[in-house]
């Protein structure tokens, strides 16, 4: 495992992913249509807590939607080929980093669409910097938990259904923490209070990535 190897794998990921324009379009369409359905369902008038909860639910399902593909798209042949070339730990790290990036982009896009359609009334008091930080950390956290789960589900050979069953209870701790943090950010609470939550989120992210790094090699070889 070395930085150059990870960088090469990252470039490979990006090249492969950008080739799949349809997948990206699908993700964007999912976010837009989910937000639009919410907009039609609630017609404005959302309280702060509901606004926050709805946003994170949309983001949660967007994450499942986007990250299920992470290990599904490659066939056994390509896996065997990668296996002979690189350290599995580089693979999981590269993929976690890449998925984290995808989730950050996707989260910020969702936030944009969400505020455009559902209004910015609740953001009056908000500390925007904190809120965006919560969104970014939450996105990275989803990515780091779901990357390993996606690998397990792909290995089990039963993709999307299993992914939801396995991933949902594991994402909950993160989801509850990040929802609380972003709620406090919307209330405009001072950094001195929210910094514990952000510290907790970073800790959760680091621990999940470390676990994935330790466990993935066992998953990799058959």
């Amino acid at each position: 495992m070395e930085p150059a190897e990870i960088a090469a794998l990252l470039r490979l990921e990006m090249a492969l992913d950008l080739r799949q324009r349809a997948a990206w379009a699908g993700m964007l369409l999912y976010v837009v249509s989910a937000v639009y359905v919410c907009y039609l369902a609630v017609k404005g008038g959302l309280g702060l807590a509901t606004w926050n909860a709805l946003f994170w639910i949309i983001l949660l399902f967007a994450a499942f939607n986007a990250l299920t593909r992470s290990f599904q798209r490659e066939d056994a042949g390509r896996q065997l080929y990668l296996y002979t070339l690189v350290d599995p730990r580089s693979v999981i790290l590269a993929r976690a980093i890449y998925n984290g990036g995808v989730m950050v982009v996707l989260s910020l896009l969702s936030l944009l669409v969400y505020t455009l359609l559902l209004g910015t009334d609740v953001l009056v008091e908000a500390d925007l910097g904190q809120f965006v930080l919560a969104v970014v950390l939450g996105g990275i956290g989803f990515a780091s938990v779901l990357t390993l789960i996606s690998a397990i589900a792909a290995r089990a050979g039963n993709g999307i259904g299993l992914m939801a069953i396995l991933g949902f209870p594991l994402v909950l701790p993160l989801l509850l923490t990040v929802m609380r943090a972003s709620k406090l950010a919307l209330d405009g609470v001072a950094w001195s209070v929210t910094s514990t939550y952000f510290g907790g989120l970073v800790l959760l992210d680091v621990i999940t990535v470390a676990l994935a790094w330790i466990l993935f090699p066992y998953l990799w070889r058959d």
Partner: peptide, 28 residues
């Protein structure tokens, strides 16, 4: 294969569960 997949999920889930049961309540 089942043994290995289940073991990996079990370890991953248990660590996150311990975090959820004993660390997250301290935060919230």
């Amino acid at each position: 294969k089942r043994a290995r997949l289940a073991a990996i999920y079990n370890i991953f889930a248990f660590v996150l569960l311990v975090l959820f049961l004993f660390v997250v309540p301290r935060l919230n």
